[in-house]
Design a protein around this nucleic acid. Sequence first.
DNA 1: AAAAGTTTTGACACCGGTTTCCTAATAGAC
DNA 2: GTCTATTAGGAAACCGGTGTCAAAACTTTT
Lengths: 341, 341
Amino acid sequence: MDKSDKQPTINDVARVAGVSKKTVSRVINRSPLLKMDTREKVEAVIAQLGYVPNPQARALALRRNFLLGLLHDNPNAQTVLNFQEGVLDAIRETEFALVVRPVDRHSPEMLDDIRNFLELQRLYGVLILPPISEDDELAALCREMGCGYVRMGSAALDEAEHLVQSNDREMVAGVVDYLVGQGHRRIGLIEGPAGFRSAFERREGFLSAMRRHGLAVPDEAIVPGNYRFGSGVEGADRLLRAEPRITALFASNDEMAAGAYHAARERGVDVPRDLSIVGFDDSPIAAHIWPPMTTVGWPIREMGKAAALKLVSPDLAEARPSCFPARLVTRASVAPPASEI
Amino acid sequence: MDKSDKQPTINDVARVAGVSKKTVSRVINRSPLLKMDTREKVEAVIAQLGYVPNPQARALALRRNFLLGLLHDNPNAQTVLNFQEGVLDAIRETEFALVVRPVDRHSPEMLDDIRNFLELQRLYGVLILPPISEDDELAALCREMGCGYVRMGSAALDEAEHLVQSNDREMVAGVVDYLVGQGHRRIGLIEGPAGFRSAFERREGFLSAMRRHGLAVPDEAIVPGNYRFGSGVEGADRLLRAEPRITALFASNDEMAAGAYHAARERGVDVPRDLSIVGFDDSPIAAHIWPPMTTVGWPIREMGKAAALKLVSPDLAEARPSCFPARLVTRASVAPPASEI
DNA sequence: AAAAGTTTTGACACCGGTTTCCTAATAGAC
DNA sequence: GTCTATTAGGAAACCGGTGTCAAAACTTTT
């Protein structure tokens, strides 16, 4: 169709249309100061030639590119992928693309690594997923490098313009309300790792709700965890050894909750008859484990979309909410405590 | 540190070092025809200024960019993410970046969508994950657009240069050997979706091994599936209704195997006492479900690395194997059939 | 010491866009 | 019918690199 197999450039369009390349550029960029028939003529040639502007050339001339980065070190693959989908929802019809960068938060070189990455790629902006979104040094690095950023978090970390969040704390309180409503009085908590904002928020939500209901939370009803399966097994095991035994348990994420299922099974404790379990995240495992797990789901995909929008069209995003409500997903891992029946 | 807050360019380096920009370019590109002391002088200035070449400018001048694309429509998030990690292993210290593009294989516009994407971004090459890696039209599109590509598959799809694969068929045969070795004779199969190469390969491996052992495979011992949880539930349910009842079951992926657990539980069939289950993929759910699932794991991360290497340094990759061996991961979902005890 | 050959370096055009600044064209005012 | 405003469009420089080709700087040969 073209005279050669190379993609046509702005010069080809200009020549064929009999105008200067600047005029073509004006058409592409929807400049308002063009006569209608000039615009139409050029647009016809663009369509005829199948011209698509070269993003590298644009990036060079504009001194900024059209690449969004996704920085993550998330144990939950489904969360990451859902977030990616959300970002894509926001940029699908645009010239932006999403580049991913998994990082290792346990590596001492993480920041240097990211610095190199940002220097090399000169991204338009980055989206940062928890848990590393809670790293203030990382945010400072982005500012220093002049790289836009939006953090996804579970609580206020930063100015609203750089944040997309959900109401973890309230939701966990809601979980406690729900369990108490079912008749539970002795409820255990498997925490997330120390120093994690999300872990802190979920713990606070738990404690405040328990307090509100006038329920005691003995030390042995709270055990540490690290968001991973193994720590859920251990944590639940410890909780189940304490007397009087808890009748319900909230784990700060689904993976640990799945670990709790595991520990219960090993001890011959039936879920939900002898022990109710609630997780957090609504990851696939929650639906696939037996019995299906009651958990808290948050609209990750929408949050991904909102986060991307905040970067690429801040004016448009301003109006949108930055706090997305999580909701309780009721399945079959909660029942009234056996003793009450 | 710099005279301004903008990143230094090749011109700055050239000026400070007192050489032409072409010489700086030679230093960057490790050109062999440079005097040693010139090179050292320029390198010193580069280090002093903290100069990093602008990838957009390079991309424009070289008429190719340094972006690898990942095309996927994979139901298994962990697989996608592991593959991403592998790709990153290969390109971490290079100027390449990885851009992701989830697609929808059920959409009639998928090809147009991808065409637009490739036209717009002009990627260096794309990596294609199953199941869409099996789409020959997509591969043809890549060739037509002059875009490099590597497909990841479970069987020969294409010339070796564009393929990274694993030996699914053999491995499934190995699963059958293992089950037969445990004493099973009536073994069921939950298939993957029709038209999927991987589903075909796994089925063939199953059938050929059964034949080799002289075991019958009645029609009702094979049920269709679509790689999703729900189809595993339904499929296992159908298998469990048939008489004489099967004592073991192979599901073509872990998600369906997890569905089979679900169906067994609902019918009061104990795993593994009354029914042995084997999955495929070694996804997280296999380790987290109760009892932990015996499955087949393949080195996705290494395959991701190999695939990326095939694109970015074909000469280096030539020597590496393109077929990666899967292996049986033995956990607790297989036991000798109860009837034989 | 001059000629010839080889290695090292630089000048300049170019990749495909955008920006700046200026001119030509049209419209409105007198 | 001329003289400004205003608008539409173009020429040239630029963004930050790389390719080409010739000049400059060394070696080696005669």
